[in-house]
Design a protein around this nucleic acid. Structure first.
Length: 109
DNA sequence: CGGGTGACTCGGC
DNA sequence: TGCCGAGCCACCC
């Protein structure tokens, strides 16, 4: 059930990510039907500044690296937000990423 | 209307 | 084992 905009679809999924969990751009893209649309998801997140209720910190790349940390208020903001949710981060990378991973295709469908 | 862009991903060397 | 190149699609200028 696609929304009016691709962006809103992305935001809807991101908002459903439980605290303490994370997912990847590719996982969201795959859930929305665009297997190779990870870049679009990332770009949608670039506009997340217009959506304060979107926990963008819970979206990382497939390696669990905080690739988008530089787009937050400060480069350390993303890590702080994730650590506040109980996620361990080391060298800009999520520890036990596979354990915290939240796949929308599995959890939602 | 066409081209450039991007917080990605995969496959090949 | 790690880097490089190509594919991908929606949006802005």
């Amino acid at each position: 059930m696609p929304s009016r905009d691709f962006f809103e679809d992305v935001y809807d999924v991101v908002r459903l990510i439980p605290p303490g969990r994370v997912t990847s751009y590719g996982a969201i893209a795959a859930y929305l039907g665009s297997k190779r649309g990870a870049r679009m998801v990332g770009w949608a997140m670039n506009n997340c500044h217009a959506r304060p209720d979107v926990p963008a910190q819970r979206v990382v790349n497939r390696n669990g690296v905080l690739s988008g940390k530089n787009f937050f208020g400060s480069p350390e903001r993303m890590q702080e937000l994730l650590e506040a949710e109980g996620i361990q981060i080391e060298n800009d990378q999520i520890v036990h990423f596979d354990r915290c991973f939240w796949d929308p295709a599995v959890e939602l469908g």
